[in-house]
Design a protein around this nucleic acid. Structure first.
Lengths: 226, 226
DNA sequence: AGCGCCATGTGAACAGTGTTAACATCAAGC
DNA sequence: GCTTGATGTTAACACTGTTCACATGGCGCT
């Protein structure tokens, strides 16, 4: 029985790396795929993102990706969730401030920093394909009752807490803390996303934008105070 | 000389429609392509947008598209510019109001209406691939010195005028009208884009969102007043 | 020990994509 | 008339995402 053209599948490059691991190996091709996916996305952008290119980079066949993810979109979604953890790591730095107001302002600073320092991540998370890729992603006001809480939820609740502090300290007047939090979020998101979309080049360089950003947030907070 | 398999190119469907037109024919396959491109984009979304599908719908070969546009992205960009004219048509309705403040508020209303009634257009214009597709699109604060003014510029200048009116009427305190206009824009864009991204489902149905939206804008304006 | 299981990989194939090239058609102008 | 140029065609190329049948090799079981 010939079955001639079957090169008996040699694992090529990947073999020498994969040694004693088999089940949920800590080698973790999955993790490599996630990293590569982010890289490819950062370099190529959402439009030109290619599953095959990700696989190629990890040194694995395209079909192998389907052992770890349901497909292209699922891979992107997983990478997105990972990006959210970076986002969280920015926001929590605001906790080092002493007063409620300082913490809220610091959070808005961290929000801007994350956006400007990780533009592709930001776009990926907040500006792109929210219903195609991110079905459940991002901060969602929708209360998710079932399933484990995702980092996505935590970040919004974190913002709500910062706002609540300010309400308790009577720095902000609010009937509904969540609603007010959304206002703040929308404001900073509007500023950051327009900046990333290159629609705000007119305000100047990064420092100029930072100043404008702070002033704009201050204006909003003045409007929210009583 | 056979050159056998050459079916001598019969124009198939398109032939009977194209009658006496040749140069810049008013039949205008180009216009049909633009319309179809918008339709396909609205139905399939940015990710699954297909040039071949657009051509198919118009009843023309894929290669024919290249007679009118440089490629897929150029086609999308042209469709985007067309979408901008719809956007403008919403905004100008605000001019029917009597006072500066009413006009500014009406403009914010029209902005929201455009976003919610043309979600795909809005996403296309303001939320997607701004550097890949829309290179020069959308409202840009950057002053464009050369070239004819695009509808893109007009819409932002329109907003600036509404703000200036309010500043003149001493309803808004502002050092720089353009800067203040950006703040307003960013705020409403933030609200609309988050709503479209399904991140604000928690505020309720469309009416509830509209109320929240108006209140949020009012809060911002209060902060901007003096 | 042998055994089979099963997670993980493979290559080949399929349908669909954007893009380019060579060729056909036909109104219009010299 | 003949050439020209805009507009279309088909065929091909190099990609893409996805699925399939198949290999491989640790692991736990008897």
């Amino acid at each position: 029985m010939a079955l001639v053209t079957r090169p008996s599948a040699r694992p090529a490059l990947k073999a020498q790396a994969r040694v004693g691991v088999h089940q949920r190996g800590l080698d973790d091709t999955r993790a490599e795929l996630l990293g590569a996916a982010r890289d490819v996305f950062l370099e190529a952008g959402a439009a030109r993102f290619s599953l095959r290119e990700v696989a190629r980079r990890v040194g694995v066949s395209a079909a192998a990706v389907y052992r770890h993810f349901d497909g292209k979109e699922a891979l992107l979604f997983a990478a997105c969730t990972q990006g959210f953890q970076v986002f969280s790591s920015y926001l929590v730095r605001a906790l080092s401030e002493a007063t409620p107001l300082a913490r809220l302002l610091a959070m808005s600073e961290q929000y801007r920093r994350f956006g400007l320092e990780n533009p592709q991540d930001y776009r990926f998370i907040f500006m792109s394909l929210a219903d195609e890729v991110n079905e459940v992603s991002a901060m969602s006001l929708t209360v998710r009752l079932a399933g484990p809480p995702l980092p996505q939820d935590a970040t919004f609740l974190f913002l709500v807490d910062r706002v609540r502090e300010c309400v308790d300290a009577e720095l902000i007047a609010s009937k509904d803390v969540q609603t007010t939090a959304v206002q703040v979020w929308a404001h900073v998101h509007g500023l950051v996303s327009l900046r990333l979309s290159k629609h705000l080049e007119g305000v100047g360089d990064e420092d100029a934008f930072a100043n404008f950003y702070r002033a704009s947030v201050a204006d909003l907070l003045r409007g929210l105070a009583r």
